[in-house]
Structures are given as C-alpha cells and as structure tokens.
Simulated assay, not measured.
Amino acid sequence: MRTFSSLLVRGLIAGLFAGLLAGTFAYVMGEPHIDAAIAIEEAGAPTHTHSDDPAATEAEEEPLVSRNGQRAGLFLATSLYGVALGGIFAVAFTLLRRRLRTTSDSYAALGLAAAGFIGIVLVPFLKYPANPPAVGDPETITKRTISYLLLLVIGLLAVWAGVAAARWAEARFTEPPAWVRLAFGTAAFAVTVIAAYLILPAVNEVPGTFPATLLWQFRLSALGTQTVLWLLLGFAFAGLADRRLKPVGTVVPAATGGVA
C-alpha cells in the first residue's frame, strides 16, 4: 500500500509537470493559429440584425469568456488534465508492472507511456484530427464525439492486440527472432486499427475556403501538445518511479560499511 501511495503521488507530480509544459507548448505554438482561425470565423459570420436593445446587441457581440481568459484557462486546463492523467498512469503502472516483462521500472514506464500515446492520441488523431474554430458543424458534435471516444477505446484495444499477438508468437515458436514477434504484433495492431477506420464514419466538415496551411498548422500544434504531455509524463514518471523503487537498506559486504 505504501508503494502504491508513493507511486500515485509521483504520478500526480509528473502529470502536473507535464501538463504545465504542455500548456506552455500549446500557448506558444497553438494560440496564434487559434487567433487566426477566429479571425476567419468572425470575417465570415453573418451580420447581426439591428436591435433597439443595446444590452441585447452587446450580449450578442461579447463572448462568454474573453480570449485573455481562455489563454489563462489553458494552463489550468492542461495542468488539471496532466494531474488526472498522471494519477491514472500511476494506477495503470501498478496494475500492469509485472506484465511488462522488463526488470527496469524506467523502461516499463516509458513503454507504458508510448502505448498510451499511440492508443489514446495517435490512433484517434489519424482518423479524426483536431479542428480549429470555424471548422465543424455544431449539429454533428454528438456524432463526432461518440465516434472519437469509440476510436479511443479501439486504439487501446489495438495496442493490447499487438502485445498479445507478439507474446503468442513468442509462445508458439521456439525462441523466435525479434522480427517475428514484431511482425505478429504489428499485424494485429494494424488489422484492428484499419478495421475501425473502415467501420467508423468519416468526418470532413472543413470548408473549401478555409486555408489548408492554417488547418494543418493547428492540427500539428494540437498533436505536438499531446506529444509533449505524454513524453514528459513518461520520462518524469520513469525517473521518479525508478528512484522510489530502488531498494532501501540493502545489505552490502562488511568491507564497505555494512548497510547502504
């Protein structure tokens, strides 16, 4: 229990650290593209009809949260998300540690972070990439959200299928080379993902007049934010977990002083 509590605290710390730096990346690399997309949206928005009520006109023009408030909230959002993700990561590490087949807790943490990034971020992104303001139909938001969440779950299942297939090949063949295990694992992962891509509906609601360069700059910045988050979470947790799990009070030869 003490070990899990310590790992959980370290997961929360690693998540907070990763969330803050991911928010910094999003602020520097993503916010300019959001401002540009908002400018395009406002330029193409229909003119409001004239109203004799100044309060109603002001309510139509003023956003619920100002852009400065949104920028400040960005760091809060990424920090909270990072803390939550760090806690979940610590729980997953505790449950799966003995199944990862490595004697290094650092490698186990990095491998788990890589698997999480692929299943939770990369697989859904390739099918349903993020869209900036002025892109997307509000009437399809429920459909898009459900499809995205389904693909996120399938992404995790695809990672599990890849690992299971690689281990099946290892058990099926006598001392198979690494490329055989890799081939089986990759094939199982790819088949699962491709099947999901074909079954789930396609979503293409980008207006033809929206600049393609701005669209992909925004999408890459969104992917970069998630990459920074998972990369830093993996390395931070690996360092903290490895330090925590080193044996304390190990008996050493008497010539060196007894107990370390």
Rank of each mutant, 00 (worst) to 15 (best):
W230P: 00
T140Q: 05
A158P: 01
T47I: 15
A109G: 08
T209P: 03
A36V: 07
L200A: 04
A202N: 15
V252K: 07
A18G: 03
L220N: 12
L64N: 09
A178C: 05
V9E: 13
A190R: 06
G69L: 09
Y27G: 00
R2D: 15
V228H: 01
A260M: 10
T94G: 11
F237Q: 01
E31A: 12
V123H: 00
A43R: 15
A108G: 05
W216C: 06
V159D: 01
P54T: 06
G23P: 00
T145M: 01
T142V: 11
F235R: 12
A59L: 11
L76K: 09
R2M: 15
A255G: 12
L20S: 04
A188Q: 07
A196W: 00
A254N: 10
T24L: 14
R101Y: 13
L16W: 04
L157D: 02
H33M: 11
F189P: 00
L149H: 03
A72K: 14
L223N: 04
G73L: 09
I88K: 08
T49P: 11
G234T: 02
P54M: 04
G111I: 04
L231Y: 08
R244D: 13
R2G: 13
T213H: 11
I118W: 00
W230Y: 11
E31N: 07
